[in-house]
């Protein structure tokens, strides 16, 4: 579990980096638009989701106000039979935020995609 951290400074990859500008010059407008639209649109959505999630957390983390919980003990709470819904929501929201952040810094959407809930939720 404990690995040497290399720091986030050189680890940021993103949508911009994945745009190969030299190759765009030869494409026509519709293609360029489609590529950039897709990337920009995806980013806007992610960023807005981050905003919503963080704002929601303002409400749910109030239950930790009096006694901050260690991350380990919080995660143990999820395995209990009766869980405070606010705690559970908080944990899941934080997981979601972190999955989005992983996508932002690594371009890896694997975890985010796996979070898609099963049919039972609807």
């Amino acid at each position: 579990m404990h690995k040497k951290a290399t720091g986030s400074k050189d680890n940021v990859v993103h949508v911009i980096n994945s745009i190969n500008i030299s190759s765009l010059g030869t494409k026509d407008l519709a293609e360029v638009e489609a590529i950039i639209k897709e990337k920009v649109n995806a980013s806007i959505k992610l960023y807005e989701q981050l905003k919503v999630l963080i704002t929601m957390l303002v409400k749910y983390t109030q239950s930790f106000a009096s006694r901050p919980q260690s991350v380990d003990s919080l995660e143990r709470i999820t395995r209990r039979r009766s869980v405070n819904p606010d705690v559970l929501r908080t944990i899941r929201l934080v997981q979601y935020i972190l999955a989005i952040t992983i996508y932002l810094v690594k371009g890896d959407d694997r975890l985010l995609k796996e979070m898609k809930p099963a049919e039972v939720f609807f």
Binding site: M1, K3, A5, T6, G7, S8, D10, N11, V12, V13, N17, V71, E75, T78, R79, V83, P85, L88, R89, R92, V94, Q95, L98, A99, T101, I102, V105, K106, D108, L111, E114, M115, K116, P117, A118, V120, F121
Partner: peptide, 30 residues
């Protein structure tokens, strides 16, 4: 569905520590 089972529950991939290490140990930028 706060109390229903969710895909991240008990999944070690989604433990905070695992998620954080994913973020912080990102590969070197090309």
């Amino acid at each position: 569905e706060p109390l229903g089972k969710f895909v991240t529950d008990n999944n070690p991939q989604y433990r905070f520590v695992s998620l954080l290490s994913e973020i912080l140990l990102a590969p070197e930028q090309e």
